[in-house]
Design a protein around this nucleic acid. Structure first.
Lengths: 336, 336
DNA sequence: TTGAAAGCGCTAACAT
DNA sequence: ATGTTAGCGCTTTCAA
């Protein structure tokens, strides 16, 4: 670590430590003469403020923690870009945590964030972290949920209406004549359960519809490929006419597995994804998907958190819920 | 921030602060009785160690800073995953910085990292940061370069042979009969200049070859689309037979722009990308690309840095150079 | 095995 | 306008 401190700067500039501190924090309160000498000393010594010491003293870090499920999914990186932009504008930096890289997932990052005394936490939760977040908040670190609502209403959140999103997918599949349906996702993840719920709900009342639910383990492209192959291996009568995948990574994989095994998409099996990541439009078979405004969700969440941080007292949790939008492409509809 | 400190724990457990500190850091030196009481107090109070205070005292943070060019490019997130894995195994956490989100790019993050007193920095450099890194190092923060070599040999690095990568692309295009060639990239970025250099070098000696170089501004999919359209708008005689794009994001965009304007890839224009990101294989027109071992590059770089951190004295910089591999797909070759 | 005390680098009263 | 000083929470001699 750097070993030149404010004390060295003070010595070289021939002033006291507090004068140095003042040119750093209250430049107006110091004579331009002293300020000049301090500036020169800073440059000459290559002084760089020690954030740990400062934070210890002032009690805040101007750091936000952002815990994501999986950084290799473009949906999450879009969220992250939104968060970073809003944070930067308000003078905060963000610590980015990728849950997938930790054996203990998001919990491990929340611990790290708390130890580092970030001023607040943004999280796209996958598991059961609400109790943990309660603890953080009790101890003074507020949190805002992204991509998921807090039913208990204790945390602010920014999400899209996943139930509606699922329904949008279901209606489209129904309208295009599909009756034997599969859902692939992780129903233990709240967002994905909601998408399933909406999907299932929109099916009610239509004759002859069957829905089979598959519970994935990793929800990534590789797993999707496995599912695609497995589906292709099924006897024609048991094969789904359409698959609703809980996110686009998975959906893109399913298509690869399907076509790799010789099936046609959408003629043999239609596929709908979720998130509408940027690569879905340019995929081999462009993917029909439910779009979430990822970047906007990130910046809105950061804004909510920062507002809470600057509020004098406790704050009433707010939930911003965006409306998802179905983007129809070739994976469900033959187009010219 | 959390307001319960080691002092509160000590009071509740009826021991001194140093005993609490010892159960945290040297559990073996404390009686099991005292340890128990301290443990209980910690849980009861919800004590969470203050990393800033600890770091201020011990002089290191166990944090690594990773500065990436653009987190929305899967190549970089793969690198990040590799870094995180190796870091975690060695007991380090990583601060992830996305240069694209800062007006001052990577420089801004280097400042932040240094203020936060990370123990070391990993960087995929785009601009001219070597002098800045010199400064960091002089003040005690070592750095390792990713995806790019340091010609002066002062920093360790992990990269692939970009000159060879460019040559691979050129040879393939030549072999498949293309003669009117375009390169699109940012030659001011070292990696991309090397790719161009290798590309150009491999062209020498072949008759009738022309190479036109386009300098991009953002090197992302959107810009690629613009280039694709622009190329499509060219009179047939001026249109390139093949485009070598400096990365896959750009290449994928070029294909979209081209096909959107009615041209056929590869029949009218062939396209080669760089990085072989995961989406390139599943693209509408699967992309021929030069593959870099992204994850491995990340973990190797982290390992190099950590080794340097644990070394007693100064360390001789090492450069690990992986060999790139050309992956041929439909964007350059008509396949059944 | 345990405790008292100093000090990491910084900021914020307070005094001058 | 500038300096003195205390203290943020922790670890680490050193002494008991």
């Amino acid at each position: 670590m750097s070993n030149v401190s404010i004390r060295d700067v003070a010595a070289l500039a021939g002033v006291s430590m507090s004068t140095v501190s003042n040119v750093l924090n209250n430049p107006q309160r110091v004579s331009s003469d002293a300020a000049d000498r301090v500036q020169r000393a800073i440059e000459q010594l290559g002084f760089v403020r020690n954030a740990a010491a400062r934070q210890l003293r002032v009690g805040h870090s101007r750091l936000l923690g952002l815990a994501l499920i999986n950084i290799s999914n473009p949906f999450f990186t879009d969220v992250a870009m939104g968060v970073e932009e809003a944070a930067r504008e308000a003078g905060y930096s963000v610590l980015l945590g990728n849950s997938a890289s930790r054996p203990d997932g998001e919990g491990g990052f929340l611990d790290l964030f708390e130890k580092q005394r970030v001023d607040g936490v943004l999280i796209v939760p996958s598991g059961d972290v609400l109790e943990k977040l309660d603890g953080l908040r009790r101890r003074g670190t507020p949190a805002v949920l992204i991509d998921r609502i807090d039913d208990r209403g204790t945390f602010s959140s920014v999400s899209t209406d996943d139930v509606l999103g699922g329904a949008l997918a279901a209606r489209h599949l129904l309208e295009t004549g599909r009756r034997r349906l599969w859902y692939i996702g992780m129903p233990e993840v709240r967002q994905m359960r909601d998408r399933l719920e909406g999907f299932r709900g929109a099916l009610a009342g239509t004759a002859d519809v069957t829905l089979h639910v598959e519970t994935g383990r990793t929800i990534d492209a590789a797993e999707g490929v496995d599912y695609g192959r497995a589906i292709a291996a099924l006897p024609t009568g048991q094969r789904p006419e359409a698959v609703f995948a809980a996110n686009d990574m998975l959906a893109l994989g399913v298509i690869q597995g399907l076509t790799g095994a010789g099936l046609r998409v959408p003629q043999d099996v239609a596929v709908v994804g979720y998130d509408d990541i940027v690569f879905s439009a340019a995929a081999a078979i462009p993917l029909t998907s439910v779009r979430q405004p990822s970047g906007r969700m990130g910046s809105a969440a950061a804004a909510l958190l920062i507002e809470e941080l600057s509020a004098p007292g406790p704050v009433v949790p707010r939930s911003i819920v965006y409306e998802p939008r179905l983007v129809i492409r070739s994976s469900t509809e033959v187009r010219d």
